[in-house]
Every structure is written in structure tokens, then in C-alpha cells.
Simulated scan of single mutants.
Amino acid sequence: MKQLHNNETIGDITMNYIMPSKISEEIERKGIIAVLEIEDENTAIPVVQALIEGGVTAIELALRTPAAEPAISLIAGKFSEMMIGIGTIIESGQAERIKKYPGVSFGVAPGTNPAIIKEAQQCGLPFAPGIATPTEIELALSLGCRILKFFPAEGMGGLSFLKSIDAPFRHLDLHYIPLGGISQENLAAYAKMEQILAIGGSWIANKELIRTGNWKEINRRAKAAQQTWKNIRGS
């Protein structure tokens, strides 16, 4: 992957990139990001333990439940090897609040909201907005974003659609984190596209598996996903 510096001059325009290279490179090394929706903070430790033992050491913890923020502290306090990303950052004040939690490495959103992106920039939270169209890619670019969440990936047409909308921007070396409809069955196809930085999804540890405490199945899915990624991208 091309080095993404914090600032780069293109013509007379200086771009202030919102995802520092050290963060994007770590995300790429991790490869698989397990998307978690924690309904009970007491499940945070066992689900993350199952993921780590399965080789998955990056998560996107969605801000969709009251238990989400308490879970951040629990996870960060026990698992230094887990890269913690925070998802569903869609409201004013969330980026600034999340940045204050020790252990949080980056944030993502389902869409491209200039106000949220600017707040993340101002508070220093590495951030990837969600895109689904060329217009959203252009808007994200204008705000200094080159690591983009492709969401909802399968709902928008999957890998072929992503390749199509990326084509006009290929010379800019954008990178994507696809989420939405990704599964073990289509994981390999996505991993083969070099513009994909990492792959996220809830299939590894979905709400039902977490709710029922099926840590063994979460561990199995984590191992399978990580092995598929390594088979294609290398260790």
C-alpha cells in the first residue's frame, strides 16, 4: 500500500489526511475486523477473548446500544493486543467523546457527513467515512479522507460495483474497508482486490452468537476468516 502521510500537497492544495499511515498500516496488517454490537457489557470480555484466540485482533464496536461505551473501557483495559475501532459515529459530539477513551484507535461511520468528519479531524480521531457512490467518494476526498468504508457492500452490488466506482479514482490510491453482507463465502473474492485495506463484518460474532454465549462458534469463525485472509494476503 502507498504510504499515506498526514499531509500532502497536490497542486496548490494541502490535504490534511484524517487517517495517519501508522493506523492504516496496522489495520491492513490486522486484515479482518469483527463488527460487534454489544447489548450487555458483561459479554464484551468473553467475545473479544474468543476473537483473539481465533486470530482476529481488530474490532469495530458499534455505538448502537447503551452497553457500547462501557464495553470500550473493559476491552481496552484487558486486551492490549486488540485494535479498537468505533463504528456508527453519526451524531455531533460522538467523535470527540470517543477520542477520550484510552485504547480507541480509529472511528468509522456508515455515511459521509462533513460535520462528523470535521469533528473527527479537530479532535484527532483517525476516521474512515462510509461511501456508496462516486459522489460520496469525491466529498470524502475533499475532506481529506482516503481510507473509506464501503457500506453496505453487498447491498450496493458487491465487489463488481466497488471496482466500477473506484476506477475513476484509481490513480489516487484510495483504499476501502468493505462491510455489509460480507461472509466467509465471499470473503476470499474481496481479499483479492488490492485496493481493499481490510474486511469487516458481523458474521464472525453476530448478535445472536453473542447473546447466547456461543464463544466456540465465534472462535471457529474468527479462525476461518483470518486463515482465508492470510491465504490470499500472506501473514
Rank of each mutant, 00 (worst) to 15 (best):
G155M: 07
G155R: 01
G155P: 03
G155H: 06
M156A: 08
M156Y: 07
M156S: 04
M156C: 07
M156E: 01
M156V: 06
G157F: 03
G157Y: 09
G157M: 00
G157I: 05
G158H: 00
G158R: 04
L159H: 09
S160M: 10
S160A: 11
S160P: 05
S160T: 10
F161Q: 00
F161M: 03
F161W: 03
F161E: 02
L162D: 04
L162I: 04
L162E: 02
S164I: 03
S164K: 09
I165G: 07
I165Y: 02
D166A: 00
A167V: 06
A167W: 03
A167P: 00
A167G: 00
A167T: 08
A167N: 03
P168Y: 11
F169T: 03
F169H: 03
F169D: 04
F169E: 01
F169P: 00
F169W: 00
R170F: 12
R170M: 12
R170T: 14
R170S: 12
H171S: 08
L172V: 08
L172P: 02
L172I: 11
L172S: 00
L174I: 09
L174S: 01
L174G: 05
H175Q: 14
H175R: 10
H175N: 09
H175T: 11
Y176H: 02
Y176L: 08
Y176C: 01
Y176G: 01
I177H: 01
I177R: 08
P178E: 15
P178F: 13
P178Q: 14
P178M: 14
L179V: 15
L179E: 03
L179I: 15
L179Y: 05
L179H: 07
G180S: 13
G180N: 06
G181Q: 11
I182T: 10
I182M: 10
I182G: 00
I182Y: 01
I182E: 00
S183D: 15
S183R: 14
S183M: 13
Q184W: 12
E185N: 11
N186R: 12
N186G: 11
A188I: 15
A188C: 12
A188T: 15
A188M: 13
A188E: 15
A188W: 11
A189C: 14
Y190C: 12
